[in-house]
Design a protein around this nucleic acid. Structure first.
Lengths: 343, 343
DNA sequence: ATCACAATTTTACGCGCGTAAATATTTTAT
DNA sequence: ATAAAATATTTACGCGCGTAAAATTGTGAT
């Protein structure tokens, strides 16, 4: 609490007895100055509240303290959650997170990258749209800015990638469903925007074949990010046109599953593994709402805390070292089976 | 597409034949220069891609082109959606949106405001936490920065407020439920973080009394933003301890209702208005997921497009005029009844 | 006490742009 | 055509800070 507010570093220098360049050094990294001077600065800071002009700082620094975070669709609670965790980790690391959502649109994704470029971030954490991404644009961006990809991989772009081991998680789920009842049919979008979706499809087919079972796919139309709605419409049609050749449905992700459950409900199909149930439904991702569907959704949980932590660690290390990875480092985490009432 | 990239406005001036101060004027507002010069600038911009250094710009401008957007909880799809609409409107208005979430925490809300203050935004759109907000801190912020509140009102803070007419919407829902079946009991948090929740409680009581009915409240514990979980736990307890003195439950918001539906399902209570149903459940807000609950949730839709549009219009007008409102302007929008299968 | 070394201060310049005032030019109205 | 008004240019300075180089001071070990 001070009566006379400090306007700039110059003034802080005169009242603290520390020279302006040293103050500049302190604000860039408090650990880089002698402990005794650090104390003096912090004492002055207590009485004279001041914080450096962020624009002047960023204009002149070689590297800003900004870290961009781009997610494909922030209205999806899954990405909202992972973004929140990442934001906190970035702040803990002494950087300033800039969160942007691509809202499911290619144009928006490019705009986000352009927007980030203009603020000269020290690094970027990018969960790309996937199929709809402008690969060339992303490649150019990665060449300019140290970028770590997560959730969704695109080729071998970026310095590192952290995501889910889809083959493992899908195989686990297929095996579980097979062991506890009829083998599953796979419910998915025909042309998903998400590369993970293709990996899951292939993983499903391979897992079924490994069990000497015939893979069966229900491939629904839709190319937006309104997965619940797509799952609902596709579910209605699949049920009404009797495409369900088994009583067990494995949905490519939880949001589709939520829509499918609504369709099943509307058609009077009771979902669950108990007697009196017509259908078992499983999802994938352990979406925040999966616990609260009726019935609660059996699914595979992603360790998004690990994905977030490791992604942030990777980008911080890249920034600190100032080097680029000579080769992209890919890390896949295993999923965890979450058994609930739906299957 | 150019071979030689432009590094700064000076260089652009020399290649375009327009003086740097005029270019500066152009970038601040393209309409402020003569049409013929504008053409010249834009022609040069096509061949020499360049964009002004955002830090140098913001450092020196009286007012930045930044507009802060603060929502209480971005992992709630409702806020994610409204934030998205607002972001687009802000961009259309020629400003740069900075989206921040308070993640349900008082500390985070204050940090967000501090963070915004440090980037000297031209204006801020704030949906406050409510009860948990540091009113004094927000008041100080509003004194410094033109701020429009939305969704949640705090006293008469801000230059304007746009939100829902809770008394109208709740009354409409109570009347509907009463006309079509038993009068509703009100399911809510005992000490909600959200002022709207208090308004809804009072509106419920008044609406019931206006119908000569006795208002009944189920008030559950919980002080986080995990409304689904709170609704689920509270619902389980309410059902098991037989607090439901009527077959109709009006939940204070959709997220609580989603949790309540999960509890009802677990207890084997069939929800809906048809025969064979034990319970009718209604929500409030028309949450993006409300269409996909089982059964689909009867609720009240907020016109969040109107809230977003009017809020942005208000802040843009404030910025343009450079004046402050002599008195806060409060606008409430009516809700729309959304009849689905749950009640 | 002496030396070697690290940290700080001093001095000075630059970043890219906003902005103001005076001047010159163009446009519009008469 | 001419004057008046609008717009552009020139010139100059400042914003708040980063950073480099040289000079100075402080630190720690011998």
């Amino acid at each position: 609490m001070s009566e006379s507010k400090i306007r700039n570093m110059e003034e802080l220098a005169s009242v603290s007895g520390i020279s302006r360049p040293t103050l500049s050094k302190y604000f860039n990294d408090p650990e880089s100055v002698r402990a005794s001077t650090r104390k003096k600065v912090e004492a002055a800071l207590e009485t004279y509240d001041y914080q450096p002009n962020i624009y002047a700082m960023n204009q002149n620094r070689r590297l800003t303290k900004n870290i961009g975070i781009v997610v494909p669709y922030l209205a999806d609670p899954f990405f909202a959650e992972i973004a929140r965790v990442i934001e906190n980790l970035v702040i803990q690391g002494g950087f300033r997170p800039i969160l942007l959502s691509s809202h499911g649109g290619t144009g928006q994704e490019i705009e986000n990258l352009d927007s980030l470029r203009s603020i000269r971030p020290a690094g970027v954490l990018l969960a790309p749209l996937g199929r709809n991404s402008d690969v060339a644009a992303i490649e150019r961006f990665c060449a300019d800015v140290p970028t770590v990809l997560f959730d969704n991989s695109i080729g071998d772009l970026g310095e590192a990638f952290f995501g889910l081991d889809n083959p493992q998680s899908i195989k686990m789920m297929v095996n579980y469903l097979h062991e506890t009842g009829e083998p599953p049919i796979f419910f998915e979008m025909r042309t998903p925007t998400n590369p993970n979706a293709y990996k899951r499809r292939n993983a499903y087919i391979e897992s079924m074949e490994a069990l000497d079972l015939e893979p069966k796919l229900i491939q629904i139309e839709g190319d937006t990010w309104d997965f619940e709605d797509i799952g609902y419409r596709g579910g209605l049609e699949a049920i009404r046109t009797r495409q369900l050749t088994t009583d067990t449905v494995l949905c490519s992700n939880d949001r589709l599953a939520i829509g499918f459950l609504a369709a099943a409900y509307e058609c009077g199909l009771r979902v669950g593994s108990g007697t009196g149930c017509a259908l078992r439904v499983a999802g994938h991702d352990d979406h925040p709402y999966a616990r609260f569907t009726c019935p609660p959704l059996t699914t595979v949980a992603q360790d998004y805390s690990a994905i977030a932590t490791r992604s942030v660690e990777a980008i911080l290390k890249l920034i600190e070292s100032g080097e680029r990875a000579e080769q992209r480092d890919t890390t896949l985490f295993e999923g965890t089976l979450i058994k609930r009432a739906s299957a």
